[in-house]
């Protein structure tokens, strides 16, 4: 059986692709057309090592792990602007960089992301913010299945995911910390349709704008009253959301905040403490 390595086979050396990057001052522009996953990340690292602080990627089409290879010690923080459709695992393990996507994103946005920002002017696929541990993700439209699974927090490191639309099933499963906000701007009849929300959740908070029935929730989450602090937090979040996407959405800040919000929190920090004997 022939051995195919779909990631590394046919990857060209840097000198063969370097003409697709142009660095001027601290801004680099990369034409991603025809580049393999590793090639694009090779070029991005090359540009940052040569002092680029802002990377503009054009013609991006499915390349994975954008931003993942940019961990430097001591840390350098860069801004990555993406035109096109980045591939899976956008910003996986992200080490504090800022990524803006003008287009849709695929699966695994912000997978195990450590810190930084990801702003998507479009929608995103499955497993967004999986095991995310810091930083912020703003998605203008909706997201797919298994969003924010096992998101976690520690002390002042509280990750934030804001989704303009809605999510599919298993939102916040095993969630251990962080904040997820679903603004429900595109709901039909004002209802979210996802099921198993917060199954196994044992930390963090989910805010939903729009209606959800009890049977759509996992049995480990409870609905609690919104308090003043929650509204303050939401005002900040919505302001930031409108700052990014205000011109692309049909709703104003006050109309968004005037909607029905629900706050979901875990019933216990130890959902499975009672299943064992001896």
């Amino acid at each position: 059986m022939r051995f195919v390595d779909s990631f590394l086979d046919g990857v060209r050396r840097l000198e063969e692709i370097v003409h697709q990057a142009r660095i001027e001052g601290d801004v680099a522009e990369i034409d991603a057309k025809g580049l393999k996953h590793k090639e694009l990340n090779d070029l991005m690292r090359f540009c940052v090592e040569r002092g680029a602080k802002k990377l503009i990627l054009k013609n991006v089409c499915g390349q994975r792990y954008i931003g993942t290879r940019l961990f430097f010690n001591p840390g350098v923080k860069v801004e990555i602007i993406i035109y096109g459709t980045p591939g899976n695992d956008l910003g996986a393990f992200l080490a504090g960089h800022r990524i803006v996507v003008y287009g849709n994103a695929q699966d695994g946005v912000g997978n195990t992301m450590d810190d930084g920002e990801i702003i998507v002017h479009g929608r995103a696929g499955d497993v967004v913010a999986m095991a995310m541990r810091g930083g912020k993700i703003f998605i203008r439209d909706s997201v797919g299945y298994r969003t924010a699974i096992h998101m976690k927090e520690y002390m002042d490191r509280v990750p934030l995911l804001v989704v303009g639309g809605t999510a599919q099933d298993f939102l916040g499963e095993y969630m251990a910390g962080g904040r997820v906000v679903l603004l429900g701007l595109n709901l039909e009849n004002g209802r979210h349709r996802c099921h198993y929300i917060g199954t196994g959740m044992h930390g963090g908070v989910i805010y939903l704008r729009g209606k959800v029935e009890k049977y759509q929730l996992g049995k480990e989450v409870g609905v609690v009253e919104m308090e003043e602090e929650d509204w303050k937090f939401l005002e900040k979040v919505v302001d930031e959301f409108c700052g990014y996407f205000g011109r692309e959405i049909k709703m104003e800040r006050d109309e968004i905040l005037g909607g029905n919000f629900m706050k979901l929190i875990p019933v216990t920090k130890r959902p499975y403490g009672k299943v064992y004997s001896y």
Partner: peptide, 12 residues
């Protein structure tokens, strides 16, 4: 582990 004190550390 970067999780709050006293919470169960659940590995799916």
């Amino acid at each position: 582990r970067m999780i709050p004190e006293g919470t169960d550390a659940l590995s799916p």
